[in-house]
Design a protein around this nucleic acid. Structure first.
Lengths: 215, 215
DNA sequence: TAGATTGTTAATCGATTAACAATC
DNA sequence: TAGATTGTTAATCGATTAACAATC
């Protein structure tokens, strides 16, 4: 387990899911083997970078042959711990919560959605991923019984601070945060992955008006 | 306009919306001035980096004083072209499309949503952002008349290839892409901003299981 | 004025790319 | 075997950080 001790830089971590996605596609298209050069053309990276990345985890290729797609797919899945099922709750059952649940939380992604909460639960009859929507008042009892480790925050930003404090006190220490509340500043001990959809739109706005600069 | 000629690197472009967001907050909290050191503590960056970033655009501070929050906020808004209203259409009126429209496309973000399309339009009575949902068959006529420049793709990935080709042939050359279809590979002349929510979840999965590595 | 803090240049750090020997 | 392509080291490039003179 020598390789698992190495500290992996953020750029690499962020490329891993992308590799996984492309390999998934190749697999579905019946591609059995591929070289770093082949991957580089698909993904717009350099072959060097791809080999460097894979070799941080031990190297999964074979000289003269390249990589076995199925094996590489599996290895990266293992690195990402996609087979884990960390017990996860979703807070906020609006469009965003529903979109996130159906687009990302289904399938094996390392997490298992075990509860959904909304402050207007009584008005929502429609389930999410087969789970009923519970009122916020049941949060304490639920966490005591089911010990979720991860919370997905799909509430308005205004309620996020209070909510985060509450969830942390209930033992949750990993957050997938769609609000603009900056969890990390207030709780540096917590693991937070932020998704700022609006930031991405603003970056598009910049590039849309400075397109001559693009390489 | 000397500064506008400079090519800005991607890391900087991606930080700009974040600056804007924090400044927005400061402004709402009545903070009038702030130093690069103050911003650095809020955002977890170095004061050096912040000053470097701002100085790429000419520098908006004053020695011995720092930055005027309102002015800096406005300047970054200008850099990001948030006052523009690029005519934009949304394809896909499901939860994801609705979430994106209400969470990001409202307000001044450089874009103006002028049309929404869905292949099941006849089944959807509920408007999005005050706009009716039109069937896909009306796409050609609509684009001919209203000349949208930007499309937001919130459809399943499977239909994205065909859809993208169709939209490009209708004159759209900027995409905010929530599908997993890789537009850029097939149309390198197009401006594409991808949002891969699932990638973010997988990165969280990696970190959740390698937390001792975190700095 | 004295203190604070920027703008900006120089130094460092880390990530990417190039090169090539190893080897399938 | 000969050709292909990896694994890995070395070189380069670019981004971040440090330092400090300028100046409000």
């Amino acid at each position: 387990m020598e390789s698992s001790k190495k500290i992996i830089s953020n750029p690499v971590i962020n490329r891993l899911p992308r590799y996984y996605r492309y390999l998934d596609n190749l697999l579905k298209n019946g591609v059995r083997r591929i070289s770093s050069d082949g991957i580089s053309k698909l993904m717009g990276l350099t072959p060097s970078q791809i080999r460097q990345d894979f070799n941080l985890f031990g190297g999964f290729g074979q000289q003269g042959y390249g990589y076995n797609v199925a094996q590489l797919h599996e290895e990266i899945g293992k690195i990402l711990n996609l087979d884990k099922e960390l017990p996860t709750i979703l807070i906020g059952a609006g469009n965003l919560g529903r979109a996130v649940a159906s687009n990302a939380l289904g399938g094996s992604n390392g997490f298992k959605l075990i509860g959904v909460f909304d402050k207007n639960a009584e008005n929502i009859s429609q389930n999410i991923a087969g789970l009923p929507i519970s009122p916020m008042s049941e949060l304490e009892a639920f966490c005591k019984e089911n010990k979720p480790q991860v919370a997905v925050l799909c509430t308005p930003t205004e309620s996020a601070k209070e909510l985060a404090d509450r969830l942390i006190s209930l033992g949750i220490d990993k957050f997938w945060n769609f609000t603009n509340y900056d969890l990390l500043v207030h709780h540096p001990e917590i693991l937070v992955e932020n998704v700022h959809i609006k930031d991405s739109l603003m970056a598009l706005s910049y590039r849309a008006n400075n397109s001559s600069e693009r390489k």
